[in-house]
């Protein structure tokens, strides 16, 4: 059982991916079904706006969970699920943005431009979405090869900023009770904190591995 979990076969990974693909579709099908059966409550457009936004943020945080989880649990294959989670986060963000453009603003471009410029919570939400576009656009293997691993990774580090902007977007829109955005903020802090901690650990390990360098000033090390 444990070995199976540590190094699953190609087939097992494929099955995991299919399962995850279907799992991530559940919020959308559920919303579509409730829209169709008129059970989204009194304000269905608000329910769709909030639902798509919630799932964009949840899936973004889920994609950010992969790296620390695979390190802590020692399950390197989890990495193979990350792209799908990231793309689904983008998919729900796109639905969220489309809902705003269409159902909320009815393509009133002047009103939309005004919102983006004048309403801070829209500004940060829009910025998060814009930053997410190039990440989605470079998520396939050919793009990674074309950019080169290093550049690709540097580009995709903007996901940290996107995470922060998304939580701020949520935080600034709530009227009074900040419990929900605070929960997302906490999760994001843990996920980013785990990375900082991992980095620090790695730095120390490298320092230990090369004891001589310890006496060499840092600025020389750069070369």
């Amino acid at each position: 059982m444990r070995a199976w979990l540590k190094t699953p076969s190609r087939t097992a990974i494929s099955l995991f991916k299919i399962a995850l693909f279907l799992l991530c579709l559940i919020p959308l099908t559920s919303m579509a079904w409730r829209f169709y059966t008129d059970s989204l409550g009194a304000n269905p457009i608000e329910a769709i706006t909030h639902g798509t936004g919630d799932w964009a943020l949840r899936l973004l945080l889920a994609s950010l969970t992969i790296t620390p989880l695979r390190q802590v649990a020692g399950l390197p294959w989890l990495m193979r699920l990350r792209r799908m989670l990231g793309l689904y986060a983008f998919f729900y963000a796109l639905l969220h943005f489309t809902t705003y453009l269409w159902l909320d603003q009815f393509f009133d471009w002047a009103g939309i431009a005004h919102d983006i410029l004048k309403r801070p919570f829209i500004t940060v939400g829009f910025a998060a979405f814009v930053l997410l576009v190039p990440l989605a656009a470079t998520s396939f293997n050919a793009a990674i090869r074309a950019l080169g691993g290093r550049k690709w990774q540097a580009l995709h580090r903007s996901v940290y900023a996107i995470g922060i902007l998304s939580v701020v977007h949520y935080w600034w829109l709530v009227k009074r009770d900040i419990t929900q955005p605070a929960i997302y903020a906490f999760v994001l802090i843990v996920l980013l904190g785990a990375r900082a901690w991992q980095r620090e650990k790695e730095r120390r390990r490298q320092l230990r591995a090369t004891p001589l360098r310890r006496v060499i000033p840092i600025n020389l090390q750069v070369k």
Partner: peptide, 16 residues
């Protein structure tokens, strides 16, 4: 301060 009051969504209606 955070949103416009120029329009409203009447519950049960599609357009604002």
């Amino acid at each position: 301060p955070r949103w416009s009051q120029a329009t409203e969504r009447r519950i049960g209606e599609f357009s604002k």
